[in-house]
Structure formats: structure tokens, C-alpha cells
Nucleic acid binder design. Structure first.
Lengths: 205, 205
DNA sequence: ACCTGAACACCGTTCAAGT
DNA sequence: ACCTGAACACCGTTCAAGT
């Protein structure tokens, strides 16, 4: 049952998971599902938990604390990106942590090793998760399926500002390598959160 | 008509905007709406465009290029945060740019002044937008309305890892100041994208 | 040109009823 | 204990029909 739901989500996205669709796939009535899992929300939780069991713990690489923290952060991004359909489902009920808890714990462990703990660690984790979520919402929005006249190229074609060269306008109309940008952004925020701690300790750089 | 839709979204959120609800508020039938705006998606576009007209252009502050770029980025965050309901609506059809185009243009102008143009400017803009979107999806998810057993405090209570001190576990269960973190994260990514250009120029640090 | 009524194909959810 | 049929209150959308 939960497996069938997970299959629907993996194949057709989070929105495709409806009680009626799931019931039809299983050859039962929707009320049967309610008897077993209670609720749509509880169904989603069960699906996310099942997926969490299947996710292996990714290894953290690097020798320096900064590299290791960055590696742990990138692991969260890669996992979320690889299973974006399930992540989108988890995100829809605010339960992404349920999906990637071991990866978040690994990040906290590396932050601890780097001397970042308590409220500082909480801030660093929240920032990493927000960045991951942000690149993900950008990523699961393929530009070609946008409504008419809302494709970036069409919107930016209307911009004619003397402060901005044509090459830039042309560039922003194009596509970006989100994977590369996500890892870069994670490095930047990681460095910032490690740096603040190092400075507070009087270590400087 | 568009004003009525905007009122619904501002008051009750993006999900509250339905053809039937809007029709009821206006005292007409849903088919009337279809005659006027065609489509739900086109209705959303109209609402977003109306909101965009109402948004004033925020001033960019600071003297140094880095401060000014950061200021322009923070302006996008503040605008999105202040009107999160309409931003959520725009985001649901992938049309946030339609809402904040002038602010994005202002950011590009500051990037240009800082020597970042073309593909580098496109990357910097995409990164800033992803971060804003990320902090926003975190922000518009109040922790108290989460499903049972999914509140952060409950999830983290199950974690007992020797690598992580109790103070950190306690901290991650608590709430964060997203506004402060968002501005910090934007500064970090801005610095990174400016720094890469400066180094390519041979400026070093 | 502008608006309605009725219908279609979807949702999540409940409740009495069956075995 | 487990499952169904029918119903309720919602969606977006269309189409023939009215004025």
C-alpha cells in the first residue's frame, strides 16, 4: 500500500498521489485506504518514512573541517535533488526533515567538529536547508512547461535598461547549471557560518 | 475582479483563490470569470501583474559595490517576505520574476557596476533568487500547524548521537530568526559571486 | 457582448451498511 | 476486522442556452 503510493509519487510526482488514484492502482475503494492509514497526511508521512528507510547514509569526504561540512551539506542537496518527487511530497506537509534526518545529523556532527554548536549550529543547518529548498523549487519547475508569455526569455526581452548590457540580458534569458550553483552557494554559506565562529574564537583567518 | 482576487490572496493565502470563491465574492457565477479572464492561470497572472504595479521600487543603499549588491538582493527578499501570499501565488505558476522584475533589474544593474556581467551575472541572480525562495518556503510554514509528531522538537527528541552535544539538539528544536539568516546568507553568496569575478580579474584580496 | 444553469471529471472525507 | 456504496462539500472547466 505504502509502496504503491511511493511508486505513484516517484513516477508521476507528488500531485499525482490522490486517494482515488491509489485506490484504483490497488483495486480497492478509497474508503479502504482510510481504514488502513487514516488520512492523506498520514499516508504522506508513511510514504516519506518508507523512503527515508531506503536512503543510505552518504559518506562525508574531505580532511579540513570546512571541506567536511561542505560535503555534508552537499549530501543533503544531492539526496533531495535525486529524489525530488518524494522531497516535494515531504515539503508539501513540511516534513523534509523526516526524509533526510540522518543527513542533517551528519551535518550537525561535522559542524560540531568544526567548533560550531548550539544556536550557531542551528542557524547553519537552517541556512543550508533553506538553500537546498530554494534550489529545489527552482529545479522542479521546468522552464518549458511555464504558462504562455512567462518563459524567462519572453519576460527579459521586454527589459531595456541602459545600465544593463545586452550580453547580460541575453544571459539571464538562458538556462543555468543549478547543480553547480547550489554547491557553490552551499560552500559560500558554510564558509560564512564557520568564519563567524572562527572570528569569535579570536582565530582570525 | 482582479482586485477581488488579490484581496482573497492577501487575506487568506494563495490556496484560497478558487474560481468559485471569487465568483461568490463578486456575486456572479464561475462561468462569468471564465468569460473575462479565460483561465485560472491567466487570472493568477493578472493578479500578480496588478500586485507588481503596486510595488514601489526600493532604494539601493551603500557606497561600496558589495554593499550595494547586497542591498539590492535584500530588497528582493524583503519584498517577497512582506507579500509572501502573493509571492506564493506567483511561485505556484513559476512567475515570481513577473512580480519582482524591477527589483531583479536593479540587482543586475548593481552587479554590472561591480564588474559582474553576462553569465556571471545570470548565475549571481539565479543564486539570490533561489536563496530568497528557499527562506520563503521555510517562512510560510508556521511550525505550530504541522501534522502531529512532525514538529521539529518532537523529531529531534528522538535523536541521540554521541557526536552531537545536547545543547545543539536543544537549539535545533527551537525557532530561528529567518530574516537575519536570510540577509546573512544573501551576503555570503553575494560576496562569493563578487569575489570570483575579482579574482578572475587578478585583483586578489 | 455578457451572463447563467447544468454538466463533466476530478478532489478529500465520512458514515451507515455489509461480510 | 476489513471492505463497500453512497453521499457531502469542494475543485477547474466546458457548452449550450439565454438576454
Amino acid at each position: 500500500m505504502v509502496d504503491a503510493a511511493l511508486a505513484i509519487v516517484s513516477a508521476d510526482g507528488a500531485d499525482a498521489l490522490s486517494m482515488r488514484r491509489l485506490a484504483a492502482d490497488l483495486g480497492v475503494t478509497t474508503t479502504t485506504i482510510y481504514w488502513h492509514v487514516g488520512n492523506r497526511e498520514q499516508l504522506v508521512v508513511a510514504v516519506v518514512e518508507r523512503m527515508a528507510e531506503r536512503l543510505g547514509r552518504a559518506a562525508v569526504t574531505g580532511r579540513e573541517p570546512q571541506q567536511r561540512v561542505h560535503s555534508a551539506a552537499v549530501n543533503i542537496w544531492r539526496s533531495a535533488s535525486r529524489h525530488r518527487n518524494v522531497t516535494a511530497l515531504a515539503s508539501s506537509i513540511g516534513a523534509t526533515t523526516l526524509l533526510e534526518l540522518p543527513l542533517e545529523v551528519a551535518l550537525l556532527a561535522e559542524l560540531e567538529q568544526a567548533g560550531v554548536r548550539g544556536a550557531a549550529a542551528r542557524d547553519a543547518l537552517a541556512t543550508v536547508l533553506a538553500c537546498v529548498a530554494g534550489f529545489l523549487v527552482t529545479a522542479w519547475r521546468p522552464p518549458e512547461e511555464r504558462p504562455d508569455g512567462l518563459r524567462p526569455s519572453q519576460i527579459w526581452a521586454t527589459v531595456d535598461d541602459p545600465r544593463i548590457p545586452r550580453a547580460t540580458v541575453r544571459a539571464v534569458s538562458g538556462s543555468v547549471d543549478l547543480d553547480r550553483l547550489a554547491e557553490r552557494a552551499l560552500l559560500a554559506v558554510v564558509v560564512e557560518h564557520l568564519g563567524a565562529t572562527a572570528e569569535r574564537k579570536g582565530g582570525g583567518r
